[in-house]
């Protein structure tokens, strides 16, 4: 296991906390690590900061992530990685669409040419608002407590997407599934970061597979062309036992 000391702990929203730590390894936006919480489990986490001072943004979800949130500066974190294929870099205007904790893997892509659509259940859960050096930040909430009330695909229906060189999307699979037809129709270049349960990170356990592709090694970033040809995307996944369930 690799280990590092937490140097900073930042409360982002009521349910999310960012931890910063130093790790020399070169990591590209979209790649992830497997964090070991000794005694409580192991979870995949995207890097929300990819410079020398790395960062992860942890949402309280299950037992390991709750335990991880209890760590303080000076405590050690243990992990393996980096894993996975990163986002493709692009020049010119880019549109980032992040829903919930999906914003974490998009944060390293934010620059002054970026329009960022941040979506969450409510105003309190919107991530990184006021912290991003972007051209424009748009907020979308399920309950309308900030910005547009609704879901990203509903907002995007009225946007001119042709001005963007590339779109980057990360969030719940159902959200991305609803977005896909609209982006295909618009004919844009887009990449999606998918999330499924993972046990190994090295392409052997079959937990994160989608249509025979392992997201941990052949993803998690998937192009719009590839995504549109997948049968299981937005429909089927396997649970922890390997039983086929609806997404």
């Amino acid at each position: 296991m690799i280990n590092s000391t937490i140097v900073e702990k930042i409360r982002e929203t009521p349910s999310t906390i960012t931890f910063r730590f130093y790790w020399e390894e070169k990591v590209l936006p979209g790649q992830f690590i497997m964090i070991w919480v000794p005694g409580y489990g192991e979870i995949p986490m995207s890097l929300s900061f990819t410079g020398k001072k790395k960062g992860i943004t942890v949402k309280a979800y299950g037992v390991p992530s709750r335990k991880l949130q209890e760590l303080e500066p000076g405590d050690r974190i243990f992990f393996m990685g980096p894993y996975g294929k990163p986002f493709t870099e692009s020049h010119g205007k880019r549109l980032l669409i992040g829903s919930g904790s999906g914003m974490a893997s998009l944060l390293p892509l934010v620059n002054q040419d970026s329009t960022v659509i941040v979506s969450a259940r409510n105003r309190e859960e919107l991530l990184y608002i006021g912290k991003m050096q972007a051209e424009r930040v748009v907020t979308i909430t399920d309950d309308g407590s900030s910005g547009f009330k609704g879901l990203p695909h509903e907002y995007l229906a009225s946007m001119d997407l042709s001005v963007f060189q590339r779109l980057y999307v990360c969030g719940p699979e159902v959200m991305m599934f609803k977005l896909l037809p609209l982006l295909m129709k618009a004919g844009v270049k887009a990449e999606f970061s998918l999330e499924r349960s993972m046990k190994c990170g090295i392409g052997i356990c079959d937990s994160c597979s989608i249509d025979g592709f392992q997201l941990c090694t052949e993803g998690p970033v998937v192009s719009i062309e590839k995504l549109s040809g997948l049968n299981e995307f937005g429909k089927w996944k396997l649970d922890h036992s390997g039983k086929r369930i609806e997404v």
Partner: peptide, 13 residues
């Protein structure tokens, strides 16, 4: 035990 719980993965192998 390796890449063999999802039918699509086995098919691809």
């Amino acid at each position: 035990g390796i890449l063999d719980q999802n039918g699509y993965t086995m098919k691809r192998i």
